[in-house]
Design a protein around this nucleic acid. Structure first.
Lengths: 255, 255
DNA sequence: CGATAAATTGAACTCTATCAATAGGTGTGG
DNA sequence: CCACACCTATTGATAGAGTTCAATTTATCG
């Protein structure tokens, strides 16, 4: 019965029980945040890092003309902003899309985390996966039709939810409006609606009441050209690396 | 007279002379690579990391239907694939776009680098900037018109070239075809051509002979809605952080 | 100086955006 | 429990931006 954060980090490899205990502590005092609440704003340089425990959040950027792009969805188990330790200021916003449970981890606490080799490596892994996810999103917007984009996004969210144990079969809670889907895929709201309808009429999905059921996973993936490789869910589990680590500290980690 | 790699890393903050010396050694035995050569292919797990010293390279992803998306441009001074130390396999290709000078840094050597606190922090910084650059590209594809996308991309490349001392005024070598511009911005070749022509006729740029001259930088930036914040060029120079570091090893770093 | 790649042009066609209005749902207050 | 207000989803019609196909001109390079 691990918490979501532990589940997420252990996707990369099992962690020693000390580490798991530490993560349990980290997650101890969460708080509730209503929907559409900003956690961090562009320009901020907060003193803590956020972790989503339940609900849904996103990174987004606003343009002069009022349009906005959602650049990432933050699911339970996701760290939001390890960035702030190096960069001078956030270059985007982070806000909740649905009522969420969130923990704030103070800087010193994060330091503790990175002192543990296993956790440090897992965090490094999440950073790289986030980057790969961004690249996949870029391919999505650059090379696919509107309907394919939506399909691909839904495939990704499903796979990610599944990976932290929040989906059964093809079904999971997805408290997203079609407008938000549109903002993430770079299409208009009206067209997003038509695409969703098309996916429905093709009997690939059922999407209503903040719940998504993927009826035909293979069909959806095929339509989207989805390949989960970029999520690197095989983690480092079967990895035969020796020492190294771009993140400094050595010592034989987990397992 | 620092080398490009040093120049790039010092954008984040000045490095001790020991570090600079180490970087000079790293860069000592480069080799030439012709244009359109793959440095790494999807699925690979090479034993070394590439650094571009001159020329131009890119990350790209190929789709079933033959379309491809360029997800990043790699300029002189850029590290290509620190990823390979954690992830099991590359999820995209890296290839040259023009004849380039490249160094291969073996794993052990990279380890040495990350042992130096100043360099480790600078590398961490480049990773975060790369991520921010991806987000900016996502906003570009998601929310801007074709012409604006091209304009934005050119603004970014200019700013980045300038930052490593490879542009004077608005002028710099840019060995890109319009087809590559199209692959990066997610538009067709024909349309890319029309956009470039439009930018020309607006007297914003001159682009020929593998050289880009930005005639009216303010005009181009305004058209593109370009804001260089995301490149975090102010680095950590004026930073008043104390210790920390997500990348493990402590010790008071540079400056 | 040919040969091949890159840039250009024109025209027809599509996908997607925009505008505008309607319908369905949900929550609140009376 | 109903009415009002507001948000989300849906529909129809029209306009545009961008794609595709096909051909031509212009560079570039050995």
């Amino acid at each position: 019965m691990d918490n979501v954060l532990t589940r997420k980090l252990q996707l990369f490899g099992e962690l020693p029980s000390d580490d798991r205990k530490l993560l349990d502590e980290i997650v101890r005092s969460p708080f509730e945040v209503p929907a559409d609440q900003e956690l961090i704003r562009e320009g901020d340089r907060p003193e803590f890092v956020h972790v989503i425990l339940s609900g849904l959040a996103c990174r987004s950027q606003l343009l002069r003309n009022g349009r906005r792009q959602i650049t990432a969805f933050l699911l339970p188990g996701d760290f939001c902003d390890l960035h702030i330790f190096i960069l001078k200021a956030m270059d985007h916003d982070i806000s909740t899309l649905a009522p969420s449970t969130v923990v704030r981890v103070p800087r010193a606490r994060v330091l503790e985390l990175t002192q543990r080799p296993g956790i440090a490596r897992a965090l490094w892994w999440t950073t790289l996966v986030d980057e790969a996810t961004l690249r996949a999103a870029l391919v999505n917007l650059g090379q696919r039709s509107a309907e394919e984009r939506i399909a691909h996004l839904l495939c990704e969210l499903h796979t990610r939810m599944l990976s932290v144990g929040l989906a059964e079969d093809g079904k999971f809670g997805l408290p997203l409006t079609q407008a938000e889907l549109a903002d993430a895929t770079g299409i208009s709201i009206v067209h997003a609606n038509r695409c969703v309808q098309s996916l429905r009429s093709k009997r690939l999905i059922v999407f209503s009441g903040k719940t998504l059921s993927i009826i035909d996973i293979d069909g959806l993936r095929d339509l989207a050209g989805f390949n989960s490789l970029y999520l690197h869910l095989d983690g480092g589990k079967h990895d035969n690396l020796s020492k190294h680590e771009a993140s400094g500290d050595a010592q034989g980690s987990s397992t």
